[in-house]
């Protein structure tokens, strides 16, 4: 690291790197704890753990009528129950610790760079994945998202690893066009929307998995799918997360985006590949919201649309930066050429 940025800068950056590594390790441990919890749960039929380790909403976990016939189920023995509860709590604690380390990484990165920690792909990825985990932790109780634990920890672990291994970039000054207050507003709202859409996408994916299992009559007495909330609950949770994310995305893409684009690039809307893709994402999610109100599109088709939305969202974030060379948003490859504004 250059010394002209001051001694403190290097220390902060070092701290950030260590904190993100620590967060990655703890996310891994949380994932392992979740896996132990859920593998222990597999041995336990659902009815006996109606209110056990996995606190689900009242409507959740109802086994389908005419499920597998079974004799009087033997309650889980004391050690199994203890194991389930302990690992469930452990996983939650570890997730919280990891999220705290994650936050430290972000804050120290911001200190090192003397700006918001989302100036490049690496920073955006670790910030965005933090939004995912923070959203999960905040909504966990309210929406009964405990069943999302293994998926969120796994996903965030992957995102953090991808960021550290492939996207890492040392702290560096911003490209000129990025030096604007809109960096805070525009990118932060885009990031919050991205995190929320990702959570909504997970819910919709599980909706589809559960719907498929129910259709084939394969929702057994045990197993992960059987412990997911009922389809109507999944659909409602997914809708509420999307209903939050959509206005935020609208704000990011269709309000602050054009305003900033006008300031930096002299044009409100350029049909830049990233703009186009963000617009496509917006249209797909608009279609999702319409689909929920259209007969014949509710449920399954709406969930599929939500997944298409997540796909365009993440392609927009990663794909466009790597595959499109015309994009003015392609900050991943450093400041391009003669133009001041990455044109």
């Amino acid at each position: 690291m250059s010394t002209d940025l001051g001694i403190g800068t290097g220390t902060w950056e070092h701290l950030s790197n260590q904190a993100i590594a620590a967060a990655g390790v703890v996310y891994f441990l949380a994932l392992v704890a979740h896996l132990v919890e859920w593998s222990a749960l597999r041995t336990v039929p659902i009815r006996t753990t109606a209110r056990a380790a996995v606190p689900a909403p009242a409507t959740a976990g109802a086994p389908p009528a005419g499920g597998v016939a079974h004799g009087a189920p033997a309650g889980p023995d004391e050690s199994t129950r203890f194991r389930i509860e302990m690992f469930a709590n452990l996983a939650l604690m570890l997730t919280i610790i990891a999220a705290a380390a994650h936050l430290v990484a972000l804050v120290s990165r911001a200190e090192a760079a003397q700006r918001v920690p989302w100036g490049n792909m690496y920073e955006f990825t670790i910030s965005g994945s933090f939004v995912v985990v923070a959203g999960y932790l905040v909504l966990r109780k309210r929406f009964g998202l405990a069943w999302m634990g293994p998926i969120v920890t796994g996903l965030v672990l992957v995102l953090v690893m991808v960021a550290v291994l492939w996207l890492y970039a040392p702290v560096e000054p911003l490209t000129e066009a990025l030096r604007s207050p809109w960096l805070v507003i525009h990118v932060m709202s885009a990031m919050i929307a991205t995190g929320a859409f990702t959570l909504g996408g997970i819910t919709s994916a599980l909706y589809l998995i559960r719907a498929r299992a129910e259709k084939r009559g394969r929702v057994a007495e045990r197993g992960y799918v059987a412990r997911l909330p009922a389809l109507s609950t999944l659909d409602r949770v997914s809708y509420r997360i999307h209903a939050f994310a959509f206005p935020v995305w609208t704000f990011a893409v269709l309000i602050t985006g054009p305003i900033w684009a006008h300031q930096a690039w002299s044009s409100y809307w350029n049909w830049d590949p990233k703009e186009v893709c963000a617009f496509i994402t917006w249209v797909v999610y608009a279609a999702y919201l319409h689909a929920r109100a259209t007969a014949g599109w509710r449920g399954r088709n709406a969930a599929i649309l939500a997944l298409v939305g997540v796909a365009t969202l993440w392609f927009n974030f990663i794909g466009i930066n790597y595959f499109s060379t015309t994009s003015q948003h392609s900050y991943a490859n450093g400041a391009p050429a003669s133009s001041l504004v990455a044109r």
């Binding site: 690291m1 250059s2 002209d4 940025l5 970039a169 040392p170 560096e172 000054p173 911003l174 490209t175 000129e176 030096r179 450093g334 400041a335």
Partner: peptide, 8 residues
Amino acid sequence: GPRQGLAR
């Protein structure tokens, strides 16, 4: 630094 040679 990493952006040596570039301008701001």
